[in-house]
């Protein structure tokens, strides 16, 4: 049996067409979990990053911590979380948020710090308050960097969300883990392919977003540098 046959087996299996083990359901579980993790990570990291970038205080700490956090083993974190919080969403969300937060934090810090100092000076000088400078000037200026951070975080989270199945939750990891456990390699390969497709899709989505959703002035400014 070659892998093409595996794939056709995987996609033609009626169990994968409808019901709780259907591809659509697993993909939606996977995306929900990833989305949740990204949301929490963003709520945590972005405001903090904007503030640190704006004040310039704690930048070194952020850089060091972000580097260290990247070395954290996700599977180890999941195990730890299960031991501490028991099996459940939290056990999976915790390592995923820990995975997504550092790139978002760094992107927010660097994005804000990259704001043209003359523009900041002018903004203050014509009467914007600190929060107005941060939100109306630094945030738009940081948008491209921030978007790149979201892209990195999203791809990593989608790829890693497979660990949810390790602690008995849903998502595409189910196919991978169940396939291995039952020696149904077709299922494992199919699940793995779906994860890859989702990750690539996320990449494309962010590339398009950067292309069309950013204000032209910010895009051009990046090109000029």
């Amino acid at each position: 049996m070659n892998w093409l046959n595996w794939l056709s087996d995987f996609f033609s299996d009626p169990d994968h067409r409808s019901g709780p083990d259907s591809i659509l359901h697993r993909v939606s579980e996977h995306l929900t979990l990833s989305g949740e993790a990204l949301l929490y990570a963003a709520l945590l990291a972005v405001p903090l990053g904007l503030l640190i970038g704006y004040t310039g205080r704690g930048v070194n700490v952020v850089t060091a911590l972000a580097g260290a956090a990247r070395a954290l083993p996700t599977l180890g974190l999941v195990t730890l979380a299960v031991l501490l919080a028991g099996v459940g969403d939290t056990a999976v969300l915790f390592p995923l948020v820990a995975l997504a937060a550092p790139p978002l934090l760094v992107a927010a810090v660097e994005g804000v710090r990259g704001t043209d100092p003359d523009v900041r000076d002018a903004a203050r000088g014509i009467g914007l308050t600190h929060s107005q400078v941060l939100l109306q000037v630094c945030l738009p200026s940081a948008a491209p960097t921030l978007l790149a951070g979201f892209r990195t975080a999203t791809v990593q989270v989608i790829a890693t969300a497979t660990v949810a199945a390790y602690v008995g939750l849903g998502g595409l990891g189910r196919y991978v883990i169940d396939g291995l456990a039952t020696r149904q390699y077709a299922v494992t390969v199919g699940g793995a392919l779906l994860v890859v497709l989702l990750a690539v899709g996320a990449q494309l989505f962010f590339a398009l977003l950067a292309r069309f959703a950013l204000p032209p002035g910010v895009r051009a400014q990046r090109r000029a540098r």
Partner: peptide
């Protein structure tokens, strides 16, 4: 105070996204 005083600097300092 600053909103009542015009301020022009060397590099103009225009907001690039506006």
């Amino acid at each position: 105070l600053r909103r009542g005083i015009g301020y022009v600097i060397q590099q103009a300092g225009l907001f690039p996204h506006r």
